[in-house]
Amino acid sequence: MTAAAPHGTAIRLVECAKTFPNGTRAMERTTLEIGDGETIVFLGPSGCGKTTLLRVIAGLEAPDPGGRVLFDDEDVTELPIEKRNVGMVFQSYALFPNMNVEENIAYGLEVHKVAPAQRAKRVGEMLEMMQIGELRDRRTTQLSGGQRQRVALARAIAVQPRVLLLDEPLTALDALLRERLRIEIDVLLHSLGVTAAYVTHDQAEAMAIGDRVAVMNKGAIVQVGTPREIYFKPASAFIADFIGTMNRVHGTARDGFLELQGGRVPWTRGGAGVIEVLFRPGDARIAGPGDAQFRGVVARQFFLGDRTRLQVSGIGDAPVTVETTEHREFRVGEEIGLKIDPEALLTLRD
């Protein structure tokens, strides 16, 4: 076993592509740097290549000739996964059914020939850290989904891997547990200081866990940035739509204003003719008659508890989605005024 790394390992992918033997191009040529101790989340719809990318980092798939994978300055492209010293957590957990919890956690240590006394100590630490001490002697088939996830994490961390790779680790869990474990994993990754790559199709999970998020589509990374950058400055319509709800409306720039169907906002960003602009539901406020820039009609309302989500027609071609924290109930057909911060309006190239 390599010495315990007090810091993480930087990962570099250089020109890595992946074509499967049947000709499927799972991953376009990708170059990416993941910083030491950073948590990066690969986010995208199913089939976007995010799992392939993770498997290339892990060493479970070899990149097409020409691609290279580096851990710090070491070229690991030719090394199989068992020689890379990575920790991996699988969507299906991949716990060994023939071993109990303790044996599962100890397996990696055993393979690395850690002395029994030291091994027992490390397993004890892991059980305590993941708060699963009482499950020590259980068979893995007797565990709940959340417990399995904890064991899988403990098993992956026990060998003090250089990088930790998580492939949709929370997808198999119910919503409530997912949210709780999401927080735990976030705390865990940052307290360990390990470099982590995390794959998910859940944008809320990606936002919560990632230091950076890499959005993927059709085998390519389409944008890399902090969760805020991705959310507020999406580079394309695909990203804007994939990360949360986004309204898209068409307006005409004229005389310093952008004219939409139900009103207009000040516009200083130039352009002429029809312009497509986007805004998040939270960026439009309900305003009184004197203050409103737009007038629209409530087409639907959804009470979400902490806020109310309205669909308002008369502003774009399709109803736009607006969120308000006002406590009152809205009537379908009710006319309301809206105000949109011009700064929050996004324009995209494509």
Binding site: M88, F96, N98, V111
Partner: peptide, 29 residues
Amino acid sequence: SIDFRTLEEGAASLGAGFWHRFFQIIVPN
């Protein structure tokens, strides 16, 4: 009937070479 590929990948990620995986993970399962 078992997802032996993922089990094997799990063992490999923990550092187990082929013979370890075959005799300690595949055969018992």
